[in-house]
Simulated scan of single mutants.
Amino acid sequence: MLYGANGYTGKLIAREAKNRGLNPILAGRHKEAIPRLARELGLEFRVFGLETPSFILESISQADLVLHCAGPFSQTSTPMMQACLAGKTHYLDITGEIEVFEAIRKHNTIAKQRGVMLLPGVGFDVVPTDCLALNLKKYLPDADRLLLAFDARGGPSRGTALTMIEGLKTGGKVREEGMLRNVPFAYKTMEVPFVHKKLWSTTIPWGDVSTAFHTTGIPNIEVYGATRKSTIRMMKLLRPFRGLLGTRLVQKTLKQRVARSVTNPTAKERAKTKSYIWGKVLNASGESREAHLVLANGYDVTVEAALGTVEHFMANDPEPGVQTPARILGEHFIRTLPNVEMRFET
């Protein structure tokens, strides 16, 4: 089942799934959009919201696996995950939110008891970076520090922009000595040597701060996003106002602005843009290893990664418990996706 099929990313996944002959049940809360898309693609559908646990459970009862694509996941993941646990249905999603990864991890024991796999983050967040991190760890097994950075070209979809606004409530995050630590906006900055050019980047609360620790065991993790120096200065100026940014009024105002001004990227726009990822591991002796990934636009990577994961578990039994992409799919899974280039610095 594909839940959230009427969203921007959900539609991309639904259409590609049909092209691959996967024929998922399309689902979501919108009474008009879901049936319309299902008729277009010739697929079954279910219309349901996430307010009533018994109704969710009944609605997913015919599915062996749910690919959950309806954000913001901070609001939607828990009810869907709990229904999957109750119904012994495997759960995948495309979140990139640290709080969601951490909340799902708390259900590891019950997931194993129920024989259910919980695998969040099977899109651009966090499949490429998770695979890169595990590759680097295997090149430097005693690494105790991991740095990841990305330059994702092209604008966000409305759904991604809304998720970013949700993230303003919590500020930044890094992992130090195995523990998550709250830090200010733009906590650290550095000039990252991406494969195409050096770019100023700043720490961001990306999902790998949570997941890469469980994939690699590396206790110190920072994730950087490429951005303009002017934006970094603005982020620093916002530090005293983090509490205000999380208030209901400010959140509502920002989300309304997104609804009015953010347009989803077209296929032509996506085709023109690439994503660049850089990673570095270091050990206590000062040794280091670096690597690069060059990929398609983030939304196209999400489609390929999510459906590639589904296809993997159509051919292989899912492993119960809370999983991370590279740990269960392998560090070379990213190489199975189209238009991916991986380079290691010598």
Results as ranks from 00 to 15, higher is better:
Gly171Cys: 04
Gly154Met: 00
Arg153Pro: 07
Gly159Phe: 04
Ala186Gln: 01
Met179Ile: 15
Thr160Phe: 03
Asp151Cys: 10
Leu168Asp: 06
Ala152Leu: 15
Glu176Pro: 00
Ile165Leu: 00
Tyr187Met: 04
Leu140Ala: 01
Thr189Ser: 15
Thr189Gln: 14
Arg181Ala: 11
Met164Thr: 13
Thr163Ile: 10
Thr170Cys: 00
Val174Asp: 12
Thr160Ser: 03
Gly155Pro: 06
Arg175Leu: 04
Pro184Met: 03
Phe150Thr: 10
Arg158Phe: 06
Ile165Ser: 00
Leu148Lys: 05
Thr170Gln: 09
Leu180Asp: 08
Thr170Lys: 11
Thr170Asn: 12
Leu168Lys: 01
Asp144Asn: 14
Ala152Cys: 09
Glu177Ser: 12
Val174Ser: 07
Thr170Ala: 10
Tyr187Asp: 13
Ala161Pro: 07
Leu148Val: 15
Ala143His: 00
Arg153His: 14
Thr170His: 11
Met179Arg: 15
Asp144Ser: 11
Pro141Phe: 01
Gly155His: 05
Leu148Glu: 08
Leu148Gln: 10
Gly155Thr: 10
Arg153Val: 12
Gly159His: 02
Phe150Leu: 14
Phe185Pro: 08
Gly172Leu: 03
Val183Asp: 08
Pro184Ile: 08
Arg145Lys: 12
Leu140Gly: 01
Leu146Asn: 06
Glu177Pro: 00
Phe185Gln: 12
Ile165Thr: 07
Gly178Asn: 02
Phe185Lys: 03
Asp151Gly: 10
Leu148Arg: 10
Leu147Arg: 13
Pro156Gly: 08
Gly154Thr: 01
Leu168His: 04
Gly167Trp: 00
